[in-house]
């Protein structure tokens, strides 16, 4: 399966590691479905950023789709 990228340059930085976020592949799951997507992640501790636009947009759309499967 191809990886969708939602990684976009962001000013948010990891407070704990004091490092900027970088694009990385992340496995997200919902209702027995697993998706590999590219998100902005802290290279130090792995903190994953889900930006608002993604949470209320594409992610919500996919959640609803999976719920109706």
């Amino acid at each position: 399966m191809s990886t969708f990228s939602f990684a976009e340059a962001t000013a948010w930085q990891c407070a704990g590691c004091n490092r900027p976020l970088e694009p990385a592949e992340v496995k997200v799951t919902y209702l027995n479905s697993v998706f590999t997507v590219e998100l902005m992640v802290c290279p130090g501790c792995g903190f994953v950023l889900v930006p608002e636009s993604l949470a209320v947009g594409k992610m919500l759309e996919v959640e609803q789709l999976l719920e109706d499967k």
């Binding site: 496995k27 997200v28 994953v48 889900v50 949470a55 209320v56 992610m59 919500l60 959640e63």
Partner: peptide
Amino acid sequence: HNGYSHRMRLPE
């Protein structure tokens, strides 16, 4: 300042 949510689970 803001709040939002999602139901998808992140790896951690």
